[in-house]
Computed example of a mutant assay.
Amino acid sequence: MPISSLRLAVVSLGLLALAACGGRAATTPTYQQELFNSGTSPFAHNFDATVNATCEAARRALLSQGFLTTMAQPDTVDATKNFQPTADTHVVVSFHVVCTPGENTANQSIAYVNAVQDGYTLKKSDTSASVGLSVLGSLSLPIRSNSDAMVKISSETVPAGKFYDRFFNLMGHYLRTVPRSSPVAADEIDSKPLAPSLIVTSPELTPTPIVVEAPAAAATAIQAPEAAAETKRQAQAAAASDPVAASAAEPASAVVH
């Protein structure tokens, strides 16, 4: 009995040791490393600018570094850039920027940035086929062809660090240097209406009459028809009183007319 108990104890200790070694070898799943804490996020940055101005600065920052913007909206910017470290590998970095209002929605905003790195490699595959010719018997001719294709082998979010810090610094540079207009707050506009008495008695607002004087020649031309009409009336009155004088005055009146 003591020997059996000793053997049982040794076996139990061995099993416990194996279990302990197996527990240390097990790795924690990747998703369990996400903390989701409420502290400062390395993927976000506060800016003293509007949402549109912040996203415009992000777009300019990406364009200045050779990224191709695929979709630009007032509050979202997407961009990609291709790299080829070796002849058989290819890397694509995709940027995604989202701008949201900050604590003060008028002139503060938050930029959330996420970059994903996708890796590709060149895969070569050989295919062969044989053709049998009945005329020559059981002769087979091998036909070989090669086909190359890029195969995606990895996809990873760029970890937090200096990469995002450099991007945020470049965004701040464009926010400081790019001119932009800002609306005037309503409480800063001060208007005072004028009093009615001031408008009536103001000498600058009193209308001045315009007097147009006719030239002397124009006045003479206006008076000439009136004189001719008066002469004609006098001739008609004389004709009514003296028919003989009227016959002599009629040619003169015709000339005057």
Rank of each mutant, 00 (worst) to 15 (best):
A57Q: 03
L175F: 02
E156D: 04
V11C: 12
A26Q: 07
Y164R: 04
L35N: 12
S5L: 14
M171I: 15
V244I: 08
F47W: 09
S197T: 13
T54Q: 05
A249R: 07
K162P: 13
R176V: 02
V178M: 07
E188L: 04
A58C: 10
A61S: 13
Q236E: 03
T201P: 04
M150K: 06
V151D: 06
G23Q: 10
V184D: 00
A185R: 15
N46H: 11
Q33H: 14
P203F: 01
I222E: 09
P183G: 05
P42D: 04
I3H: 11
V77S: 12
H45F: 03
L18C: 15
L6W: 07
T157C: 02
A224I: 01
G172N: 09
N169A: 15
G119W: 01
V91Y: 03
E230S: 14
T50D: 06
A149V: 09
R59T: 06
P42H: 05
I199H: 05
A58K: 11
A53K: 09
C21K: 07
F163Y: 08
S140T: 12
G137A: 03
S197M: 04
C99Y: 01
A235G: 08
R144K: 15
S128W: 00
V255A: 11
S145Y: 01
S5N: 14
A20C: 03
E204Q: 07
H45R: 15
E156F: 03
E226L: 02
P101S: 08
V10L: 15
S147A: 15
A224N: 08
L62R: 02
V158C: 06
D88Q: 09
F167I: 11
E213N: 13
A129Y: 11
T121I: 04
M71E: 13
R180W: 00
N82V: 10
R24D: 09
S134T: 14
T50F: 04
R144S: 14
S182Q: 10
L8Y: 06
P85I: 00
A245T: 05
Q108E: 10
D187Y: 08
V11A: 15
V200Q: 14
T206M: 10
S128Q: 11
H173N: 09
E230R: 15
R60E: 05
S4W: 03
A254Q: 08
S155M: 06
D75H: 11
D126L: 13
L68I: 05
H90V: 02
A248C: 01
D148F: 03
A19P: 02
A58P: 05
S154G: 06
A72D: 10
